[in-house]
Amino acid sequence: MAPPRAVALAPGVFRIPTIGSWGTNSFAFVDDDGSVTLVDTGLKSAPPRIVAGLKAIGKHPSDVQRIVLTHAHPDHAGGAADMAGKTGAPVAVHEDDAGFVETGTAPPTDTSSLAGKFFARLPSGGFPAVAVAERLTDGQMLDVAGGLRVVATPGHSPGHISLLHERTATLITGDAIFNVLGVRYSPRPLCTDFRLTRRTAHVLGDLEYEGVGFTHGPEILDGGRTAVRRFLAKAVDRKTPE
């Protein structure tokens, strides 16, 4: 069965799968005037799937007025240059990841484990560089569909962010937390600082929301906050070695 082109999470909030049904996800926020803010752009090969997802919700690339990146990894920023060209939309990313986006280079990875040391030796490949028009900061409220709050959750990358859409009580985790074979942290070798990832993810348990969209994995629309808080509590109880 072909993956869905777009999945509604809340009024005006959509998940657009770019790998499989939910392997890697972008998101679209539709404003009252019909304009679209696109969150993440997948791999370099993802733009055709994003355009198809926009079409499925009755939108065209010309409707995209802003592109927000949760972080500067190739599976999230790889399609940014192409989508910026297709849409003419400015790109926004946290100030601590902006330099990586503008040079098309991924941030360094955590080398505190053997797997991390191995991954660090592999060619990163990078992604097409794109100009950053807006450098985001923690707590900033973006004028997107009634307000989209920037929540700094560094660790997966130096400037990683999550996003809270307060009007629909929807959280976009970015890669702070995955929902792959259950809710979990991003694997250590994929992070810049895994211990920091674990610490800052707990911010997400203190926010108010109901539905959760994950950039890796399917959404949890009913009881999403409960699921996230339950995972974070168990993670503390397990005292995973750092």
Results as ranks from 00 to 15, higher is better:
residue 34 G to I: 04
residue 28 A to H: 09
residue 6 A to N: 10
residue 46 A to E: 01
residue 74 P to W: 07
residue 171 L to K: 10
residue 225 R to K: 15
residue 109 T to S: 06
residue 181 L to T: 10
residue 187 P to A: 10
residue 1 M to S: 15
residue 235 A to V: 01
residue 190 L to W: 13
residue 216 H to T: 02
residue 198 R to E: 13
residue 145 A to C: 08
residue 105 T to S: 14
residue 9 L to M: 11
residue 36 V to F: 06
residue 3 P to E: 13
residue 131 A to F: 00
residue 178 F to T: 09
residue 43 L to S: 14
residue 61 P to S: 12
residue 112 S to M: 03
residue 29 F to N: 09
residue 57 I to R: 09
residue 156 H to S: 07
residue 158 P to R: 07
residue 124 S to R: 15
residue 69 L to D: 12
residue 49 R to H: 12
residue 174 G to T: 08
residue 144 V to P: 03
residue 206 D to R: 15
residue 186 S to D: 14
residue 218 P to H: 12
residue 232 L to A: 05
residue 46 A to W: 06
residue 240 T to G: 11
residue 79 G to A: 08
residue 113 S to V: 08
residue 48 P to N: 01
residue 210 E to S: 07
residue 160 H to L: 08
residue 198 R to T: 11
residue 101 V to L: 12
residue 132 V to S: 09
residue 82 D to F: 00
residue 16 I to Q: 05
residue 224 G to H: 04
residue 105 T to E: 14
residue 143 D to Q: 13
residue 36 V to M: 03
residue 85 G to P: 05
residue 10 A to I: 04
residue 36 V to G: 01
residue 212 V to D: 03
residue 18 T to C: 09
residue 134 E to A: 09
residue 131 A to R: 14
residue 7 V to R: 15
residue 35 S to F: 00
residue 175 D to G: 11
residue 89 A to Q: 11
residue 94 H to Y: 07
residue 192 T to K: 04
residue 226 T to C: 00
residue 202 H to G: 00
residue 208 E to L: 02
residue 73 H to P: 00
residue 4 P to I: 04
residue 116 G to D: 10
residue 54 L to V: 01
residue 83 M to Y: 03
residue 137 T to M: 00
residue 210 E to C: 01
residue 58 G to P: 13
residue 203 V to W: 03
residue 86 K to P: 02
residue 237 D to E: 15
residue 8 A to R: 15
residue 34 G to P: 08
residue 136 L to Q: 05
residue 182 G to A: 11
residue 176 A to E: 12
residue 106 A to R: 13
residue 86 K to Y: 03
residue 239 K to W: 04
residue 43 L to F: 15
residue 157 S to R: 06
residue 176 A to V: 13
residue 50 I to V: 13
residue 119 F to R: 14
residue 141 M to K: 12
residue 76 H to C: 02
residue 173 T to F: 05
residue 191 C to D: 12
residue 168 T to I: 10
residue 167 R to I: 00
residue 115 A to G: 03
residue 36 V to T: 02
residue 211 G to M: 05
residue 146 G to H: 07
residue 218 P to C: 04
residue 136 L to A: 01
residue 182 G to F: 13
